[in-house]
Computed example of a mutant assay.
Amino acid sequence: MPIKRKNLLEIDKTDRRILDQVQRDGSLTNQELADKVGLSPSPCLRRVRALEEAGIIVRTVTILDHKKLGLDLTAIILIGMDRHTPERFAEFEEKVSEYPEVQECYLITGQDADYMLKIVVPDMDHYHQFLLNRITRIQGVSGVHSSFVLRRVIDSTSLPLGYLD
């Protein structure tokens, strides 16, 4: 069932095809993209630029193979804070944004934690050092619970565009 969208750019089928393709492979040339979505290059480029200007396409990134780079350990860390104040949260968020190991950071609800981090490090020794020398030294961190990824079952950066119909 389509989602009712208020005050958002209307996305048609061609825009959805463009978005689907660039999510799959951001390195496509404009000509390749145009061929895949059934447009000529000029209208395709205009649509891509309109999607960028509207803020729908935020940026294009390259996804690296973490294992081939020796980053073999992925951990999910649930973090509890001692106080729930905007200042405490801002300080925590500013600090973790400085750490290259942190791939994702979410302020969450429904758990016995306030934040969920996804980090990638070479091994358990590096994880231990990261936890002791960085995370637990952030003012306000009162609890840490870690889980380790055994296998990536689904690892996608693509958004589900079917809801836009």
Rank of each mutant, 00 (worst) to 15 (best):
P2K: 10
I3Q: 11
L8Q: 15
T14S: 07
R16W: 06
R17V: 07
L19S: 03
D20H: 09
V22K: 04
R24A: 09
Q31D: 06
L33N: 00
K36E: 04
V37F: 08
L39R: 15
L39T: 11
S42H: 07
V48I: 07
L51K: 04
L51P: 10
E53D: 15
G55Q: 10
I56C: 09
I56S: 03
I57Q: 03
I57K: 00
R59F: 07
R59A: 11
V61L: 00
T62V: 08
T62R: 09
L64A: 03
H66E: 03
K67Q: 06
K67F: 02
K68F: 05
L69T: 01
D82S: 14
R83T: 11
R83W: 09
H84G: 14
R88S: 15
E91D: 10
F92L: 12
K95Y: 08
S97T: 08
Y99M: 15
Y99I: 15
V102Y: 04
Q103P: 00
C105A: 08
C105P: 00
Y106P: 08
L107H: 13
T109V: 10
A113G: 01
A113F: 03
A113I: 06
M116K: 11
M116T: 10
M116D: 01
L117T: 02
I119T: 06
I119Y: 05
V120I: 14
D123K: 11
D123S: 13
M124Y: 11
H126Y: 13
H126G: 08
Y127M: 13
F130N: 03
T136W: 11
I138S: 15
Q139A: 13
V141L: 05
S142R: 12
V144I: 15
V144Q: 11
V144Y: 10
F148P: 13
L150T: 11
V153K: 13
I154G: 00
D155H: 07
T157M: 10
L159T: 14
L159Q: 12
L161W: 02
Y163C: 04
L164E: 01
D165C: 07
